[in-house]
Write a protein that binds this DNA or RNA. Sequence first.
DNA 1: GCCAATATGGCAGATACTGCCATATTGGCA
DNA 2: TGCCAATATGGCAGTATCTGCCATATTGGC
Lengths: 196, 196
Amino acid sequence: MAEISEAALQLFEDRGLEAATVEEIAAAAGVSQRTFFRYFATKEDAALPVHREFEDAVEAAVQQADPDADPCTELATVYLRVLQDFADHACPAAQRMLRVSRLVRREPLLRSALVRHGAARNSRLLQALQARFGPSGAADLQLRVAVELCTSLARAAVETWAERLEAGREAVLPDIFADAQLLAQRGRSGHLPAVP
Amino acid sequence: MAEISEAALQLFEDRGLEAATVEEIAAAAGVSQRTFFRYFATKEDAALPVHREFEDAVEAAVQQADPDADPCTELATVYLRVLQDFADHACPAAQRMLRVSRLVRREPLLRSALVRHGAARNSRLLQALQARFGPSGAADLQLRVAVELCTSLARAAVETWAERLEAGREAVLPDIFADAQLLAQRGRSGHLPAVP
DNA sequence: GCCAATATGGCAGATACTGCCATATTGGCA
DNA sequence: TGCCAATATGGCAGTATCTGCCATATTGGC
């Protein structure tokens, strides 16, 4: 599985996402095409197991969140912590994430796949939140916003992180995420219609 | 094009997204399969021209935004206005949007396609914002956050809107969007690490 | 009535992806 | 060690999505 993903990343980097066929990837990884599709539902998914790990970590951490606190804040804290884990260790995960992010930047189709992949995850995350924070009637919007907000900010943060590193600038992923969160909150505008 | 989309919606509703083939859709719309793919890049896209209209409207409205104001606030205002246009008129667009949203709820693959579609749009929107609000060096994160935030909140709002209507509750789309925005801002937490 | 531009159709073909069955590999357990 | 069940892998045929190419129809101005 790691071999397949590695082969896929290599080929995507070398000859582009569309030019690389599943057959080539499978051959490069030393497995059959059929086996490839047992591990990855689509060609693009082969580049994204790092994100899967990340989201697994988030999902696990949500189980320990404080059920009485504000869901949005709790989820943001979870994300921040997981981001720190990924970034701190100078661990291989961060390296792979950066590698994928570079690919995502120049391959719109891969970015679509990433977001698409996130969409499926968001549903699961929403259910996990509902289980933890209770399906209080009016909270449908609140939990949805928490999920969409945090995943979007995380994505924006990762992309900005990758972009800055590529431009030779310094960039600390958790800091960027915190920045993004502040930016999202600052847009508090006075002229939006009041809500009952 | 409208006929193709209508036929696609009908078939998706009747026999499900995966069971309906492009050949059937094309036949139902009275065109060839080849023509279908001239108008829609993928089968799923045939259900999403309403969203395309919506995003076109947003993109157009961004051209009139105040370049000196806060981008995030400006973009949110644009979204709110376009949402009002779509909802106010009791126009067919709102009806179609609702119809698609119902499909999206029970067809995860369609939701993926929707998000994937949005991903491509976000890139364009980001460029439009950069053109309007200027590529001021440190603003890369700010504009990205604005885009991700607004599109995510809009998606959450539309889904909640559809869900509430389906449950027989009252629901006003622009109000829900404003609600979502407030919820996103309320998560201002004190214990996040300070950012330089 | 003519011509250019554009829309559509038909067809062959590449690639992604799935179902089914056979075979290999693994990992306990007697 | 030898055996058996569970699991991983391979092969292959088939379907569906999507594209390139060329021919034909349709439209719209002059």
